[in-house]
Amino acid sequence: MHKILEKKLLRPPDVFFYKVSAPQVAAKAKAGQFVIIRLHEKGERIPLSLAGIDPAGGTISLIVMAVGKTTGEMAALKEGDEIRDVCGPLGNPTHTENAGRVILAGGGFGIAPLYPIGKAFREAGSRVVSVMGARSKSLLIYEKEMRDISDKVLITTDDGSAGMKGIITDALKGELESCGADTVMAVGPAPMMKAVCEATRPFGVKTIVSLNAIMIDGTGMCGGCRVRIGDKTKFACIDGPDFDGHLVDWDGLINRQKMYKAEEKESFEAWKKRHNLS
């Protein structure tokens, strides 16, 4: 059992921040790793990126957008409530050594896991530029945190309510043209990461992505998270989650993420009906 020590609404109406007690996980976790949680006896196991690691405090931070049954249930949890299972740290840490000038590209609430990653790059001696995109200013999260660990921050919004008007790849291309980079790291929804990889490809800059595949165990046992990387099949859980974005079969990944769309909807609707939510 893992107590929720802190919970806040990060971005209305549905993105939440949680600080969870998990001393053993926090003692071992490194930037870029993830955990698998299960809320209760009948719950599913879902992978969540680490948005913060505090070994001294024995806590980890998680950011969750309530888009389905499990995340909806999580949104209903309060400070002091408990999460039944937290398994981790899983996956390999992000390689942060000798990265040179690094551009972090974060889309949506994918910005959150970039925070510990950027911090680790910075501590390893990299210069960090963060490029954050959102539809509008009110949807932007983790801006202060990213400023804390970045040498430069570029913000794009679709409506121009903050930073430059446009999408994240516009700012990314501009930055690559004007200043260049040794490494680009992208975290976010698969279509966003795919777009980032297409944007960086002409520049020939190494582009690392953190893949969010469907998983059960997270230990290499089920093979559900398999993804084509170049001409090889890899498991996102034990071979990743970080991969060379220019080698990822994005369409294959995006297709596999849709495997349970119908069931996810069924489960969410049934749950909302039970709880009189619309």
Binding site: K42, E44, C222, G224, E263, E264, S267
Partner: peptide, 21 residues
């Protein structure tokens, strides 16, 4: 492994009472 784990460990045969499809 995945098929059996979803069914046995996660009790997928009882979906949607259990969450794993």
């Amino acid at each position: 492994n995945e098929f059996l784990t979803r069914t046995n460990l996660m009790r997928g045969y009882l979906f949607p009472e259990y969450d794993t499809p």
